[in-house]
Design a protein around this nucleic acid. Structure first.
Lengths: 351, 351
DNA sequence: CTGAAAGCGCTAACAA
DNA sequence: TTGTTAGCGCTTTCAG
């Protein structure tokens, strides 16, 4: 993969080496070079020929032209990932997970921000139809999203998977076990003696939010303490602030708060301050999203870490399988969730 | 640009329409369609022919194949932007700025994370040499970076600009006026009566960090209060924490802190807490990076906003000019900096 | 085992 | 004003 910058022709004036240049330099035909370089198993060269070709390719710094290849194979060799918000670290984590997997498969990744109120949204379908990418990893699904609606109406339109956010009715969802993550939190809190737990939930129509809430309620009921309270709002700081404020005023007896995103946690922390409640002495807080910031908040937050890399890998594999013509199927990653304990959880004041 | 999803052929089975399909459907030749669709001025069709072609293209949902076009024009129609850290909101802002400009020029943008300790770094040169993109917007430059060194040794290797982080000796830097931003902060603080101001600076070898520090010192001297104190560390939460701690213990007389990034500010806030200093009563804080999080910290932080969109636009323009064959030249955006006042600044306790 | 040649979809130079 | 045609660089089938 790597080439040596010292031997490769790097000067601007020097035109890029083409397949035919390598062929000529090594005294064989284009076909041979192509097949060899692409790892064609059926090709049987005598060792010295093979070495000669390889050496020439190396020496000339040969790189296949992506466009030419795309033209003749009808494959772009690239995938695109759509995230709703680039400024959100949680999506950066998803992108990284996806990126690693994409590279491992020798593909290029195109990252696009598919914002909610996005001005005139770019046409992602076009990305595929123009042959720039072979398929879409969609992490920005939401009800009413034009692309999602088009895709649910006609799933065969283009290869795609929905990452993290599931689309009901689709057989191309790749997600995490959000319910289990919530259960982990509830168990942790109960283990510390909390019974009156409230949850700051996300937008109810977004599947991860709904699943986290559902998991929370199930775990609470399982613990025999009723479903607990909750308030839904945006995944943002402002959303967390509002929801936590509502919760804390309506149910002052709450001793622990579980927020659905780190950004919400930041807002909830502010709400707690304004309500005059110290964390963790007067209120314990646990949040979804294990990110560096969590360790630097006041106090450092206990979080649930979820296997984002595995998510990315699974999503890419599902998409590639689809591109290869296999029938689509949804997947859920459930292993690898864990609690990261810091200092935002303490036993409730009244035991 | 937009096509109507209802009339365009969306079914998977339907093969994509090619240029020749449009030509046949409208009874003209490929050349005509190509020239018309590409806005060739010299072409003079009779109105009804033109309408017929346009209608056919629309009806068939024609999208030029990016690879084929790249092959015949020797242009990919795409650019790549390299950022050091996707999880950093500051770079998300840069990406957005760049993205807008790229779209306006009808190009596609490829976002890549070019991490410092990045495992085996992908070969970004390859991105260009393989014809996948036409040039690189590099926001991840740092001393010792292999790509940067290669590019300074041989700038003609590929079209590129260094965004935000300048590379000394290069004539392809597009940056902000970091010194002016710092001056703004110092003036604001002095206006509130502060004289003993310290700065939490970034890695000294990164140009924005050095420039911000330099601007700080100049502004301080200009105010006749000596250069002020400073401590350098990473742009991260941990870096801000360490530097602020050092500053606060070595110079307890400091009444105001200026941090070089929002992440540093988060760490500095923690350091202040641990030093028993309330913000802003005992210590005022102002930071670089105007981002949503700033409003939700405790207390909400006063920040400097810098014109990131203009940065992106200028960078893209510079790169496109270079691709078009114009001689490269560096640019600096200086207008549009402003202070966003929140509640982390108060007059010093001792006047 | 290796070479030749067709063709992927598009642009642009040249004819008509 | 519009049509024809020769590539762009690569893969792949089919001969040799």
């Amino acid at each position: 993969m790597d080439d040596d910058p010292d031997t490769a022709p790097t000067s601007a004036s020097e035109p890029r080496a083409r397949l035919i240049d390598v062929a000529r330099a090594s005294g064989v035909s284009k076909g041979v070079v192509s097949r060899l370089l692409n790892g064609d198993e059926t090709i049987r060269l005598r060792p010295q020929t093979r070495a000669r070709v390889l050496e020439a390719a190396e020496r000339l710094g040969y790189r296949p032209h992506a466009g030419a290849r795309a033209l003749s194979t009808a494959r772009a060799g690239a995938l695109a990932v759509l995230v709703p918000d680039l400024a959100n670290q949680a999506y950066a984590a998803i992108i990284r997970g996806v990126y690693g997997a994409v590279r491992e498969h020798g593909y290029t990744l195109l990252v696009a921000e598919d914002r909610d109120g996005g001005h005139e949204a770019p046409d992602y379908v076009e990305l595929v139809r123009s042959g720039r990418v072979d398929g879409l990893l969609i992490a920005s699904a939401r009800p009413g999203h034009p692309l999602v609606e088009r895709l649910t109406a006609d799933p065969g339109l283009l290869p795609h998977v929905f990452v993290n956010r599931e689309v009901s009715g689709s057989d191309r969802n790749v997600g995490l076990d959000n319910e289990a993550a919530s259960a982990l939190v509830v168990e942790h809190l109960r283990g510390h003696g909390h019974r009156r737990i409230a949850m700051v939930s996300g937008p109810p129509r977004l599947s991860p939010a709904a699943d986290r809430l559902h998991g929370f309620q199930r775990a609470m009921r399982r613990g025999g303490a009723g479903p607990g309270w909750y308030a839904s709002d945006d995944f943002s700081e402002a959303g967390g602030y509002r929801a936590a404020t509502r919760l804390l005023t309506a149910h002052p007896e709450v001793t622990a708060l579980y927020t659905s995103s780190l950004r919400q946690a930041v807002g909830a922390l502010r709400a707690a301050r304004e309500a005059g409640r110290r964390v963790p002495q007067d209120l314990s807080v646990v949040t979804y999203d294990e990110l560096p910031l969590a360790a630097f908040l006041d106090p450092p937050l206990t979080t649930v870490r979820v296997p984002v890399d595995a998510l990315g890998a699974a999503a890419v594999e599902a998409l590639l399988a689809q591109i290869a013509g296999e029938p689509p199927r949804s997947r859920r990653i459930s292993a690898g969730q864990e609690l990261v304990e810091r200092s935002s959880v303490a036993p409730p004041a009244d035991g």
